[in-house]
Design a protein around this nucleic acid. Structure first.
Lengths: 212, 212
DNA sequence: TAGTCTTATGCCACTCAGTGGCATAAACCT
DNA sequence: AGGTTTATGCCACTGAGTGGCATAAGACTA
């Protein structure tokens, strides 16, 4: 965990961040080794020397702790969506670039490795996958609200906004999945490149034909 | 529950179908009245006069029973995807028409009402929503497998297939959500119409621009 | 229609995720 | 050092979901 961020904060906050990170790391470790269902919260809490009650003050559920790395990205995304000065192009390009910006803001060290563990775990753990999908859904809705506030259109029945957001999510999932199961080390830049390809494939997917 | 389907089956199968349907209907009823979390499985089982153990022989989870109506649609969709003779147009049109066909095959009576209850419930019950999203995800993956088998392309890294499938799901969700919260009675044809509109909005969502 | 085979159900005890309440301890602020 | 705030621990509890085994009900056969 990046030590730079810690300094400057009051002791209490530093401790909290450390406990939180320890829970995430130990969870990813134990879940990866013995499986999500093969690990009880009691075991995790014992390892981190924290009571189960405390665990639930940091995370909403057992799934939640293992999904934390990805959630940081989307928090950054929503933040950028609020503040970034928009370019004048298509909405999809705006969304793509905002996502790239958010990705660049993820810590260069450690983040990619955690996401990799998290995603590989999610791929073989239905309840984790479900949890992740629902988080995406919530994020999408928040993003729609932000976009409506900033740019309109006022018509809440215009479906295009939602459709475009979902396309972004879809492209992200495509890229993430390829990236997750690629051999070799996990790198943020590699994910970025795959993301670019996935976005580029969107127009073709609308016009794609099948042999009769 | 449509009585026509029951006749012709052996007694044991008829009973099973009846128990299953009773569980679904009573669950939707109780969840709607007292909330998903405000209803225990014991209460549901007592009302249907079935042991909790038996409940779990019919459904995988508490969420599952309330999602059954929608799952029937997707089962029909996958079935049609396997068997229907494809038209030669775009993939998206093929998917759209297959979905329409599946929708037409849903029982004209009762189905729409159950879906309505189910969706309204899911909208205010995170764990149900999560469950539904994961079911969509599984369905999407199955659909991809079927499509690859039938039409190729052989390249498994072509992202367009997945992107197109997700667009269909997105359009479906848009339509379903509008339909769910529209006032007045639930009709299958109304859903069909909204679905058509949602698909029509896809091309525009790719090229949509935002004011700079 | 009795007898046998097969399959669904009921019952019971158990694990584990998640919650509420309250006492304690640690960090913060003069 | 003193008092205030806030995080943690402990304990008892609810409710979802599971495994095992006995029993009952439908299905097949003579």
């Amino acid at each position: 965990m990046s030590t730079e961020i810690l300094s400057g904060l009051p002791l209490r906050e530093r401790k909290k961040l450390r406990t939180r990170q320890a829970l995430i790391d130990t969870a990813l470790e134990q879940f990866t080794e013995r499986g999500f269902d093969g690990t009880t919260l009691d075991e995790l809490c014992t390892a981190v020397e924290v009571s189960k009650r405390t665990f639930f003050r940091y995370f909403d559920s057992k799934e939640d702790v293992a999904m934390a790395p990805t959630q940081d990205l989307w928090a950054a995304f929503l933040d950028d969506l609020q503040t970034r000065q928009p370019t004048g192009g298509t909405l999809l390009v705006l969304l793509r670039d905002t996502l790239f910006t958010a990705l660049d803001r993820m810590p260069a060290e450690g983040w990619a490795e955690r996401v990799l563990l998290s995603r590989r775990l999610a791929a073989r753990t239905p309840s984790m996958n479900a949890h992740g999908l629902q988080f995406c859904d919530r994020t999408t809705r928040t993003a729609i609200t932000i976009l409506r506030e900033r740019f309109g259109p006022a018509d809440p029945h215009d479906l295009r906004l939602r459709l475009a957001l979902d396309m972004m999510i879809s492209a992200f999932h495509c890229a993430l999945e390829e990236w997750t199961f690629q051999p070799g080390p996990a790198s943020r830049d590699d994910l970025s490149a795959r993301l670019r390809d996935a976005f580029a494939a969107i127009p073709g997917s609308v016009t794609m034909t099948v042999s009769a």
